[in-house]
């Protein structure tokens, strides 16, 4: 049971990061009906931006627990800002010109793929191409263990799950309550009609990218703190988050949250079952296969995801 809970916490941690990234995919899909393939690079840029800022601020000093929390908040904020800037630039460069030309749908996909190659390699050139950039030893958020009833939870995990939930709640409120959220939903529902109602479509799309980018950038910081920063770090979480968004019903905000959490939990629990024995039934090397098989099964029985699509209707 304790092992089960340990794996569950692990899954929730990973899942909440997937959910944060998946929100970026789903928001953009809602307004444009396009998969933003370069979102993984927004995530990566946010991670790098926050890494540089945190390294600059925290330096080599030892941090007390409140200092660690402060640094984590700072990292999330700076990651969010960098992610938002990159996402905005992405929209201006890789999406808006194509929209003006009425390009076919796949052209957007390919321009985003081009942008994704470009950004990840530019980051590699500027930063480095190693795969082992971690925060220095003193930054021990990972090692502060809270033990409840034999279940090990690290401070980092608590912060990741907590802040992800907070951000998701915030986004949900933003989309359902504010004027901006209303315009986003309007564009998602029916862009030409929204334009007739006086909504500036280009601006709304840009803001949608910015929101998604901010969430992705913050997730990038959290992910990097746990697994390291490198220039291709966006690829795998990006694919997983895309799968999570589709799982929940792409274009549906609550669906993305649910899909992300579900995918994370499934990934953690299924390959390691039965929990607590040394011999698992499936084996950890099949993790990704399990994730995709679950996705396919869900899609075969519910072809538009668990909660169905449409940003407009669901939120």
């Amino acid at each position: 049971m304790q092992d089960f809970l340990n794996f569950l916490v692990l899954g929730l941690t990973r899942g909440s990061m997937y959910a944060l990234i998946a929100l970026g995919y789903t928001l953009v899909y809602g307004v444009l009906q396009l998969i933003n393939f370069a979102h993984s690079e927004v995530f990566m840029s946010g991670a790098f931006g926050s890494y540089l800022v945190v390294n600059l601020v925290a330096g080599d000093t030892f941090l007390p627990w409140y200092g660690v929390i402060g640094v984590l908040l700072l990292g999330m904020v700076s990651g969010g800002i960098v992610g938002a800037i990159v996402a905005y630039g992405l929209e201006r460069v890789a999406y808006r010109p194509l929209r003006r030309r009425g390009a076919p749908k796949l052209a957007f996909l390919i321009s985003a793929i081009g942008m994704s190659f470009f950004l990840s390699q530019l980051a590699g050139k500027m930063f480095n191409r190693q795969k082992n950039n971690f925060f220095p030893e003193y930054f021990d958020a990972n090692k502060r263990i809270i033990e409840v009833n034999g279940v090990h939870v690290t401070l980092l995990q608590v912060i990741i799950i907590g802040s992800a939930l907070a951000m998701m709640l915030f986004l949900d409120q933003l989309v359902s309550q504010t004027k901006l959220g209303r315009s986003i939903r309007g564009v998602a529902e029916d862009a030409p009609t929204a334009a007739l109602m006086g909504i500036d479509i280009d601006r709304t799309i840009a803001r949608t990218f910015i929101i998604g980018g901010a969430l992705g950038g913050a997730a990038g910081f959290l992910f990097g703190t746990a697994f390291g920063f490198f220039n291709t770090m966006g690829f795998i979480p990006g694919v997983k988050a895309f799968a999570a968004a589709v799982l929940g019903g792409i274009g549906n905000i609550r669906g993305a949250m649910l899909g992300g959490l579900l995918l994370g939990v499934v990934e953690a629990l299924v390959p390691s079952a039965p929990w607590g024995t040394s011999q698992s039934w499936i084996g950890l090397q099949w993790t990704d296969v399990v994730a995709f098989v679950v996705l396919v099964l869900v899609l075969v029985f519910r072809p538009s995801g668990i909660l169905g699509e449409r940003l407009g209707r669901a939120a």
């Binding site: 460069v93 890789a94 010109p97 194509l98 030309r101 390009a103 076919p104 052209a107 957007f108 390919i110 321009s111 793929i113 081009g114 942008m115 994704s116 190659f117 470009f118 950004l119 390699q121």
Partner: peptide, 14 residues
């Protein structure tokens, strides 16, 4: 190459 693909799609989406 990423930049070339991007430019191609911007200026010649077909």
């Amino acid at each position: 190459i990423g930049a070339v693909i991007l430019l191609m799609m911007i200026f010649r989406p077909a």
